[in-house]
C-alpha cells in the first residue's frame, strides 16, 4: 500500500517522516499536536484520524517504501501516544454515562454487559441498506467497510498473549473461526475480498484509504488503540463482544438488501456466513471471553463495559455520518 495523501498538518508531518523526507529531529510535534482540536470533533477530524491510522498501520501490513523499523521508532511511538491519549480521553467522556448506567443496573457481569449492548444497539444503517440503499450506495458502504474487513479480526489477535486461562482459549476459538477454521477459502477477510471483487470493486488491501472519511478511520483507530495497548485489553475484548453481538441481525437485514438489489452471490455469501458465525461469536465473546476474563481479573470490568460502549457509540456516529451523506446526495464517486 502507498502512503495516503495528507489531509492537514498532522497527517502531513507523519507522512513526511514515514516517507523519509523529514527526520524526527527536524519536526516540532508539540506544535502540531497542540493545534486547537476540540475534543468532541476528534472523531470527525480527518487529519487527526488519518495521522493516527498511518501510525497504527505500521503494526499491520505497513506501506510500500516505508522503513519497517519505523514501527518501533521511539519518537513516532511517543507522538502516537499523544494522539492516543486525546482519543482515549474523548472516548471515556463519550461513554462515561453508559458505563455508569450499566453498573447501576447491577446483576452479574454478563447481564450488565448484555444490557449495555442491547440498550445501545442501533442498527439504522442495516435497515437503510435493507430497504432503501441503491446499488451505488451499497458499493460505497462496502468500500468504507473494506478498510477494516480486509484485515478482519487482526486487531484482536494482538490481545491473545495478554490474557490467560479460559478467556484465552475462547478468544483463540473465536479467532480460529474468523480465520477460516483451517480452510483458506473461508478466511473472513478473504470472503470480504470476494464480495468486493464480485461487485467490480478493488479488493487490494488499503485500496480505498484515500476516500475513507474521518469516522471510518476512527472506527478502525479505536480497535487498534484498544488492541495494541496491554492496559486496554479489557476494552478491546468488550469492543469485540459488542461488535459480535450486534452483527447477526444486521447481517440478515443487509442480506435482504442484497437480494432486493440483485447483487452477486459472492457478496451475499459474506453476510450469509456472518449471520450464523456471529450468533456463535456473540455468545463466545460475552460469556466465554469477557465474563471469564473479568472473573479472573475483576479490575477489568469497567474497561470491558467502556470498550463495548465505545464500539457502539463510534459505530453509530460513523453510520449516521454515512446515511446523512447519502441523504444529502453527496455520494463520493470512487476514483476512476
Amino acid at each position: 500500500m502507498q502512503l495516503p495523501a495528507p489531509r492537514g498538518p498532522l497527517s502531513q508531518q507523519v507522512r513526511l517522516v514515514l516517507s523519509g523526507r523529514a527526520t524526527q529531529g527536524s519536526m516540532d510535534w508539540s506544535s502540531v499536536t497542540s493545534l486547537p482540536r476540540p475534543a468532541d470533533r476528534i472523531l470527525h477530524d480527518e487529519d487527526f484520524q488519518l495521522a493516527l491510522w498511518m501510525l497504527f498501520e505500521l503494526h499491520y501490513r505497513g506501506f510500500d517504501s516505508v522503513d519497517p523499523d519505523l514501527e518501533w521508532d521511539p519518537l513516532l511511538i511517543h507522538s502516537r501516544g499523544m494522539l492516543e491519549a486525546s482519543l482515549e480521553s474523548l472516548l471515556r467522556d463519550l461513554t462515561a454515562d453508559d458505563v455508569r448506567r450499566a453498573n447501576r443496573a447491577g446483576g452479574c457481569f454478563t447481564n450488565r454487559l448484555s444490557g449495555l449492548i442491547d440498550e445501545l444497539d442501533g442498527g439504522s444503517l442495516a435497515t437503510f441498506l435493507q430497504r432503501r440503499a441503491t446499488s451505488e450506495q451499497f458499493a460505497d458502504f462496502m468500500r468504507r467497510r473494506s478498510i477494516y474487513h480486509l484485515k478482519e479480526s487482526d486487531p484482536q489477535s494482538f490481545v491473545l498473549p495478554r490474557i490467560d486461562g479460559p478467556a484465552k482459549v475462547a478468544l483463540a476459538e473465536l479467532q480460529y473461526d474468523e480465520y477460516g477454521a483451517g480452510r483458506a477459502d473461508r478466511l473472513h477477510a478473504g470472503l470480504f475480498a470476494d464480495a468486493l471483487d464480485a461487485l467490480g470493486l478493488d479488493s487490494t488491501y488499503g485500496a480505498y484509504i484515500e476516500e475513507a472519511d474521518a469516522t471510518t478511520l476512527a472506527v478502525n483507530n479505536v480497535m487498534s488503540l484498544f488492541a495494541l495497548r496491554r492496559r486496554l485489553r479489557g476494552a478491546s475484548l468488550g469492543h469485540l463482544a459488542a461488535f459480535e453481538a450486534t452483527s447477526s441481525a444486521p447481517c440478515r437485514r443487509i442480506l435482504s438488501g442484497i437480494e432486493r438489489l440483485g447483487l452477486p452471490a459472492a457478496t451475499a455469501r459474506y453476510f450469509d456466513e456472518h449471520v450464523e458465525a456471529d450468533a456463535v461469536h456473540e455468545q463466545l465473546a460475552i460469556r466465554s471471553i469477557c465474563a471469564a476474563m473479568v472473573e479472573g481479573e475483576p479490575g477489568l470490568a469497567d474497561d470491558v463495559l467502556f470498550g463495548a460502549a465505545t464500539c457502539l457509540r463510534v459505530e453509530a456516529i460513523a453510520s449516521e455520518t454515512l446515511v446523512e451523506t447519502w441523504e444529502s446526495h453527496q455520494l463520493v464517486e470512487a476514483p476512476a
Binding site: 447477526s248 441481525a249 440478515r252 449471520v275 450464523e276 456471529d278 450468533a279 456463535v280
Partner: peptide, 13 residues
C-alpha cells in the same frame, strides 16, 4: 430462528 437448527440471533427480539 430462520436458520433452524442454528441460532440466528432472533431470540433477542
Amino acid at each position: 430462528s430462520q436458520r433452524l437448527p442454528w441460532c440466528d440471533g432472533t431470540h433477542k427480539f
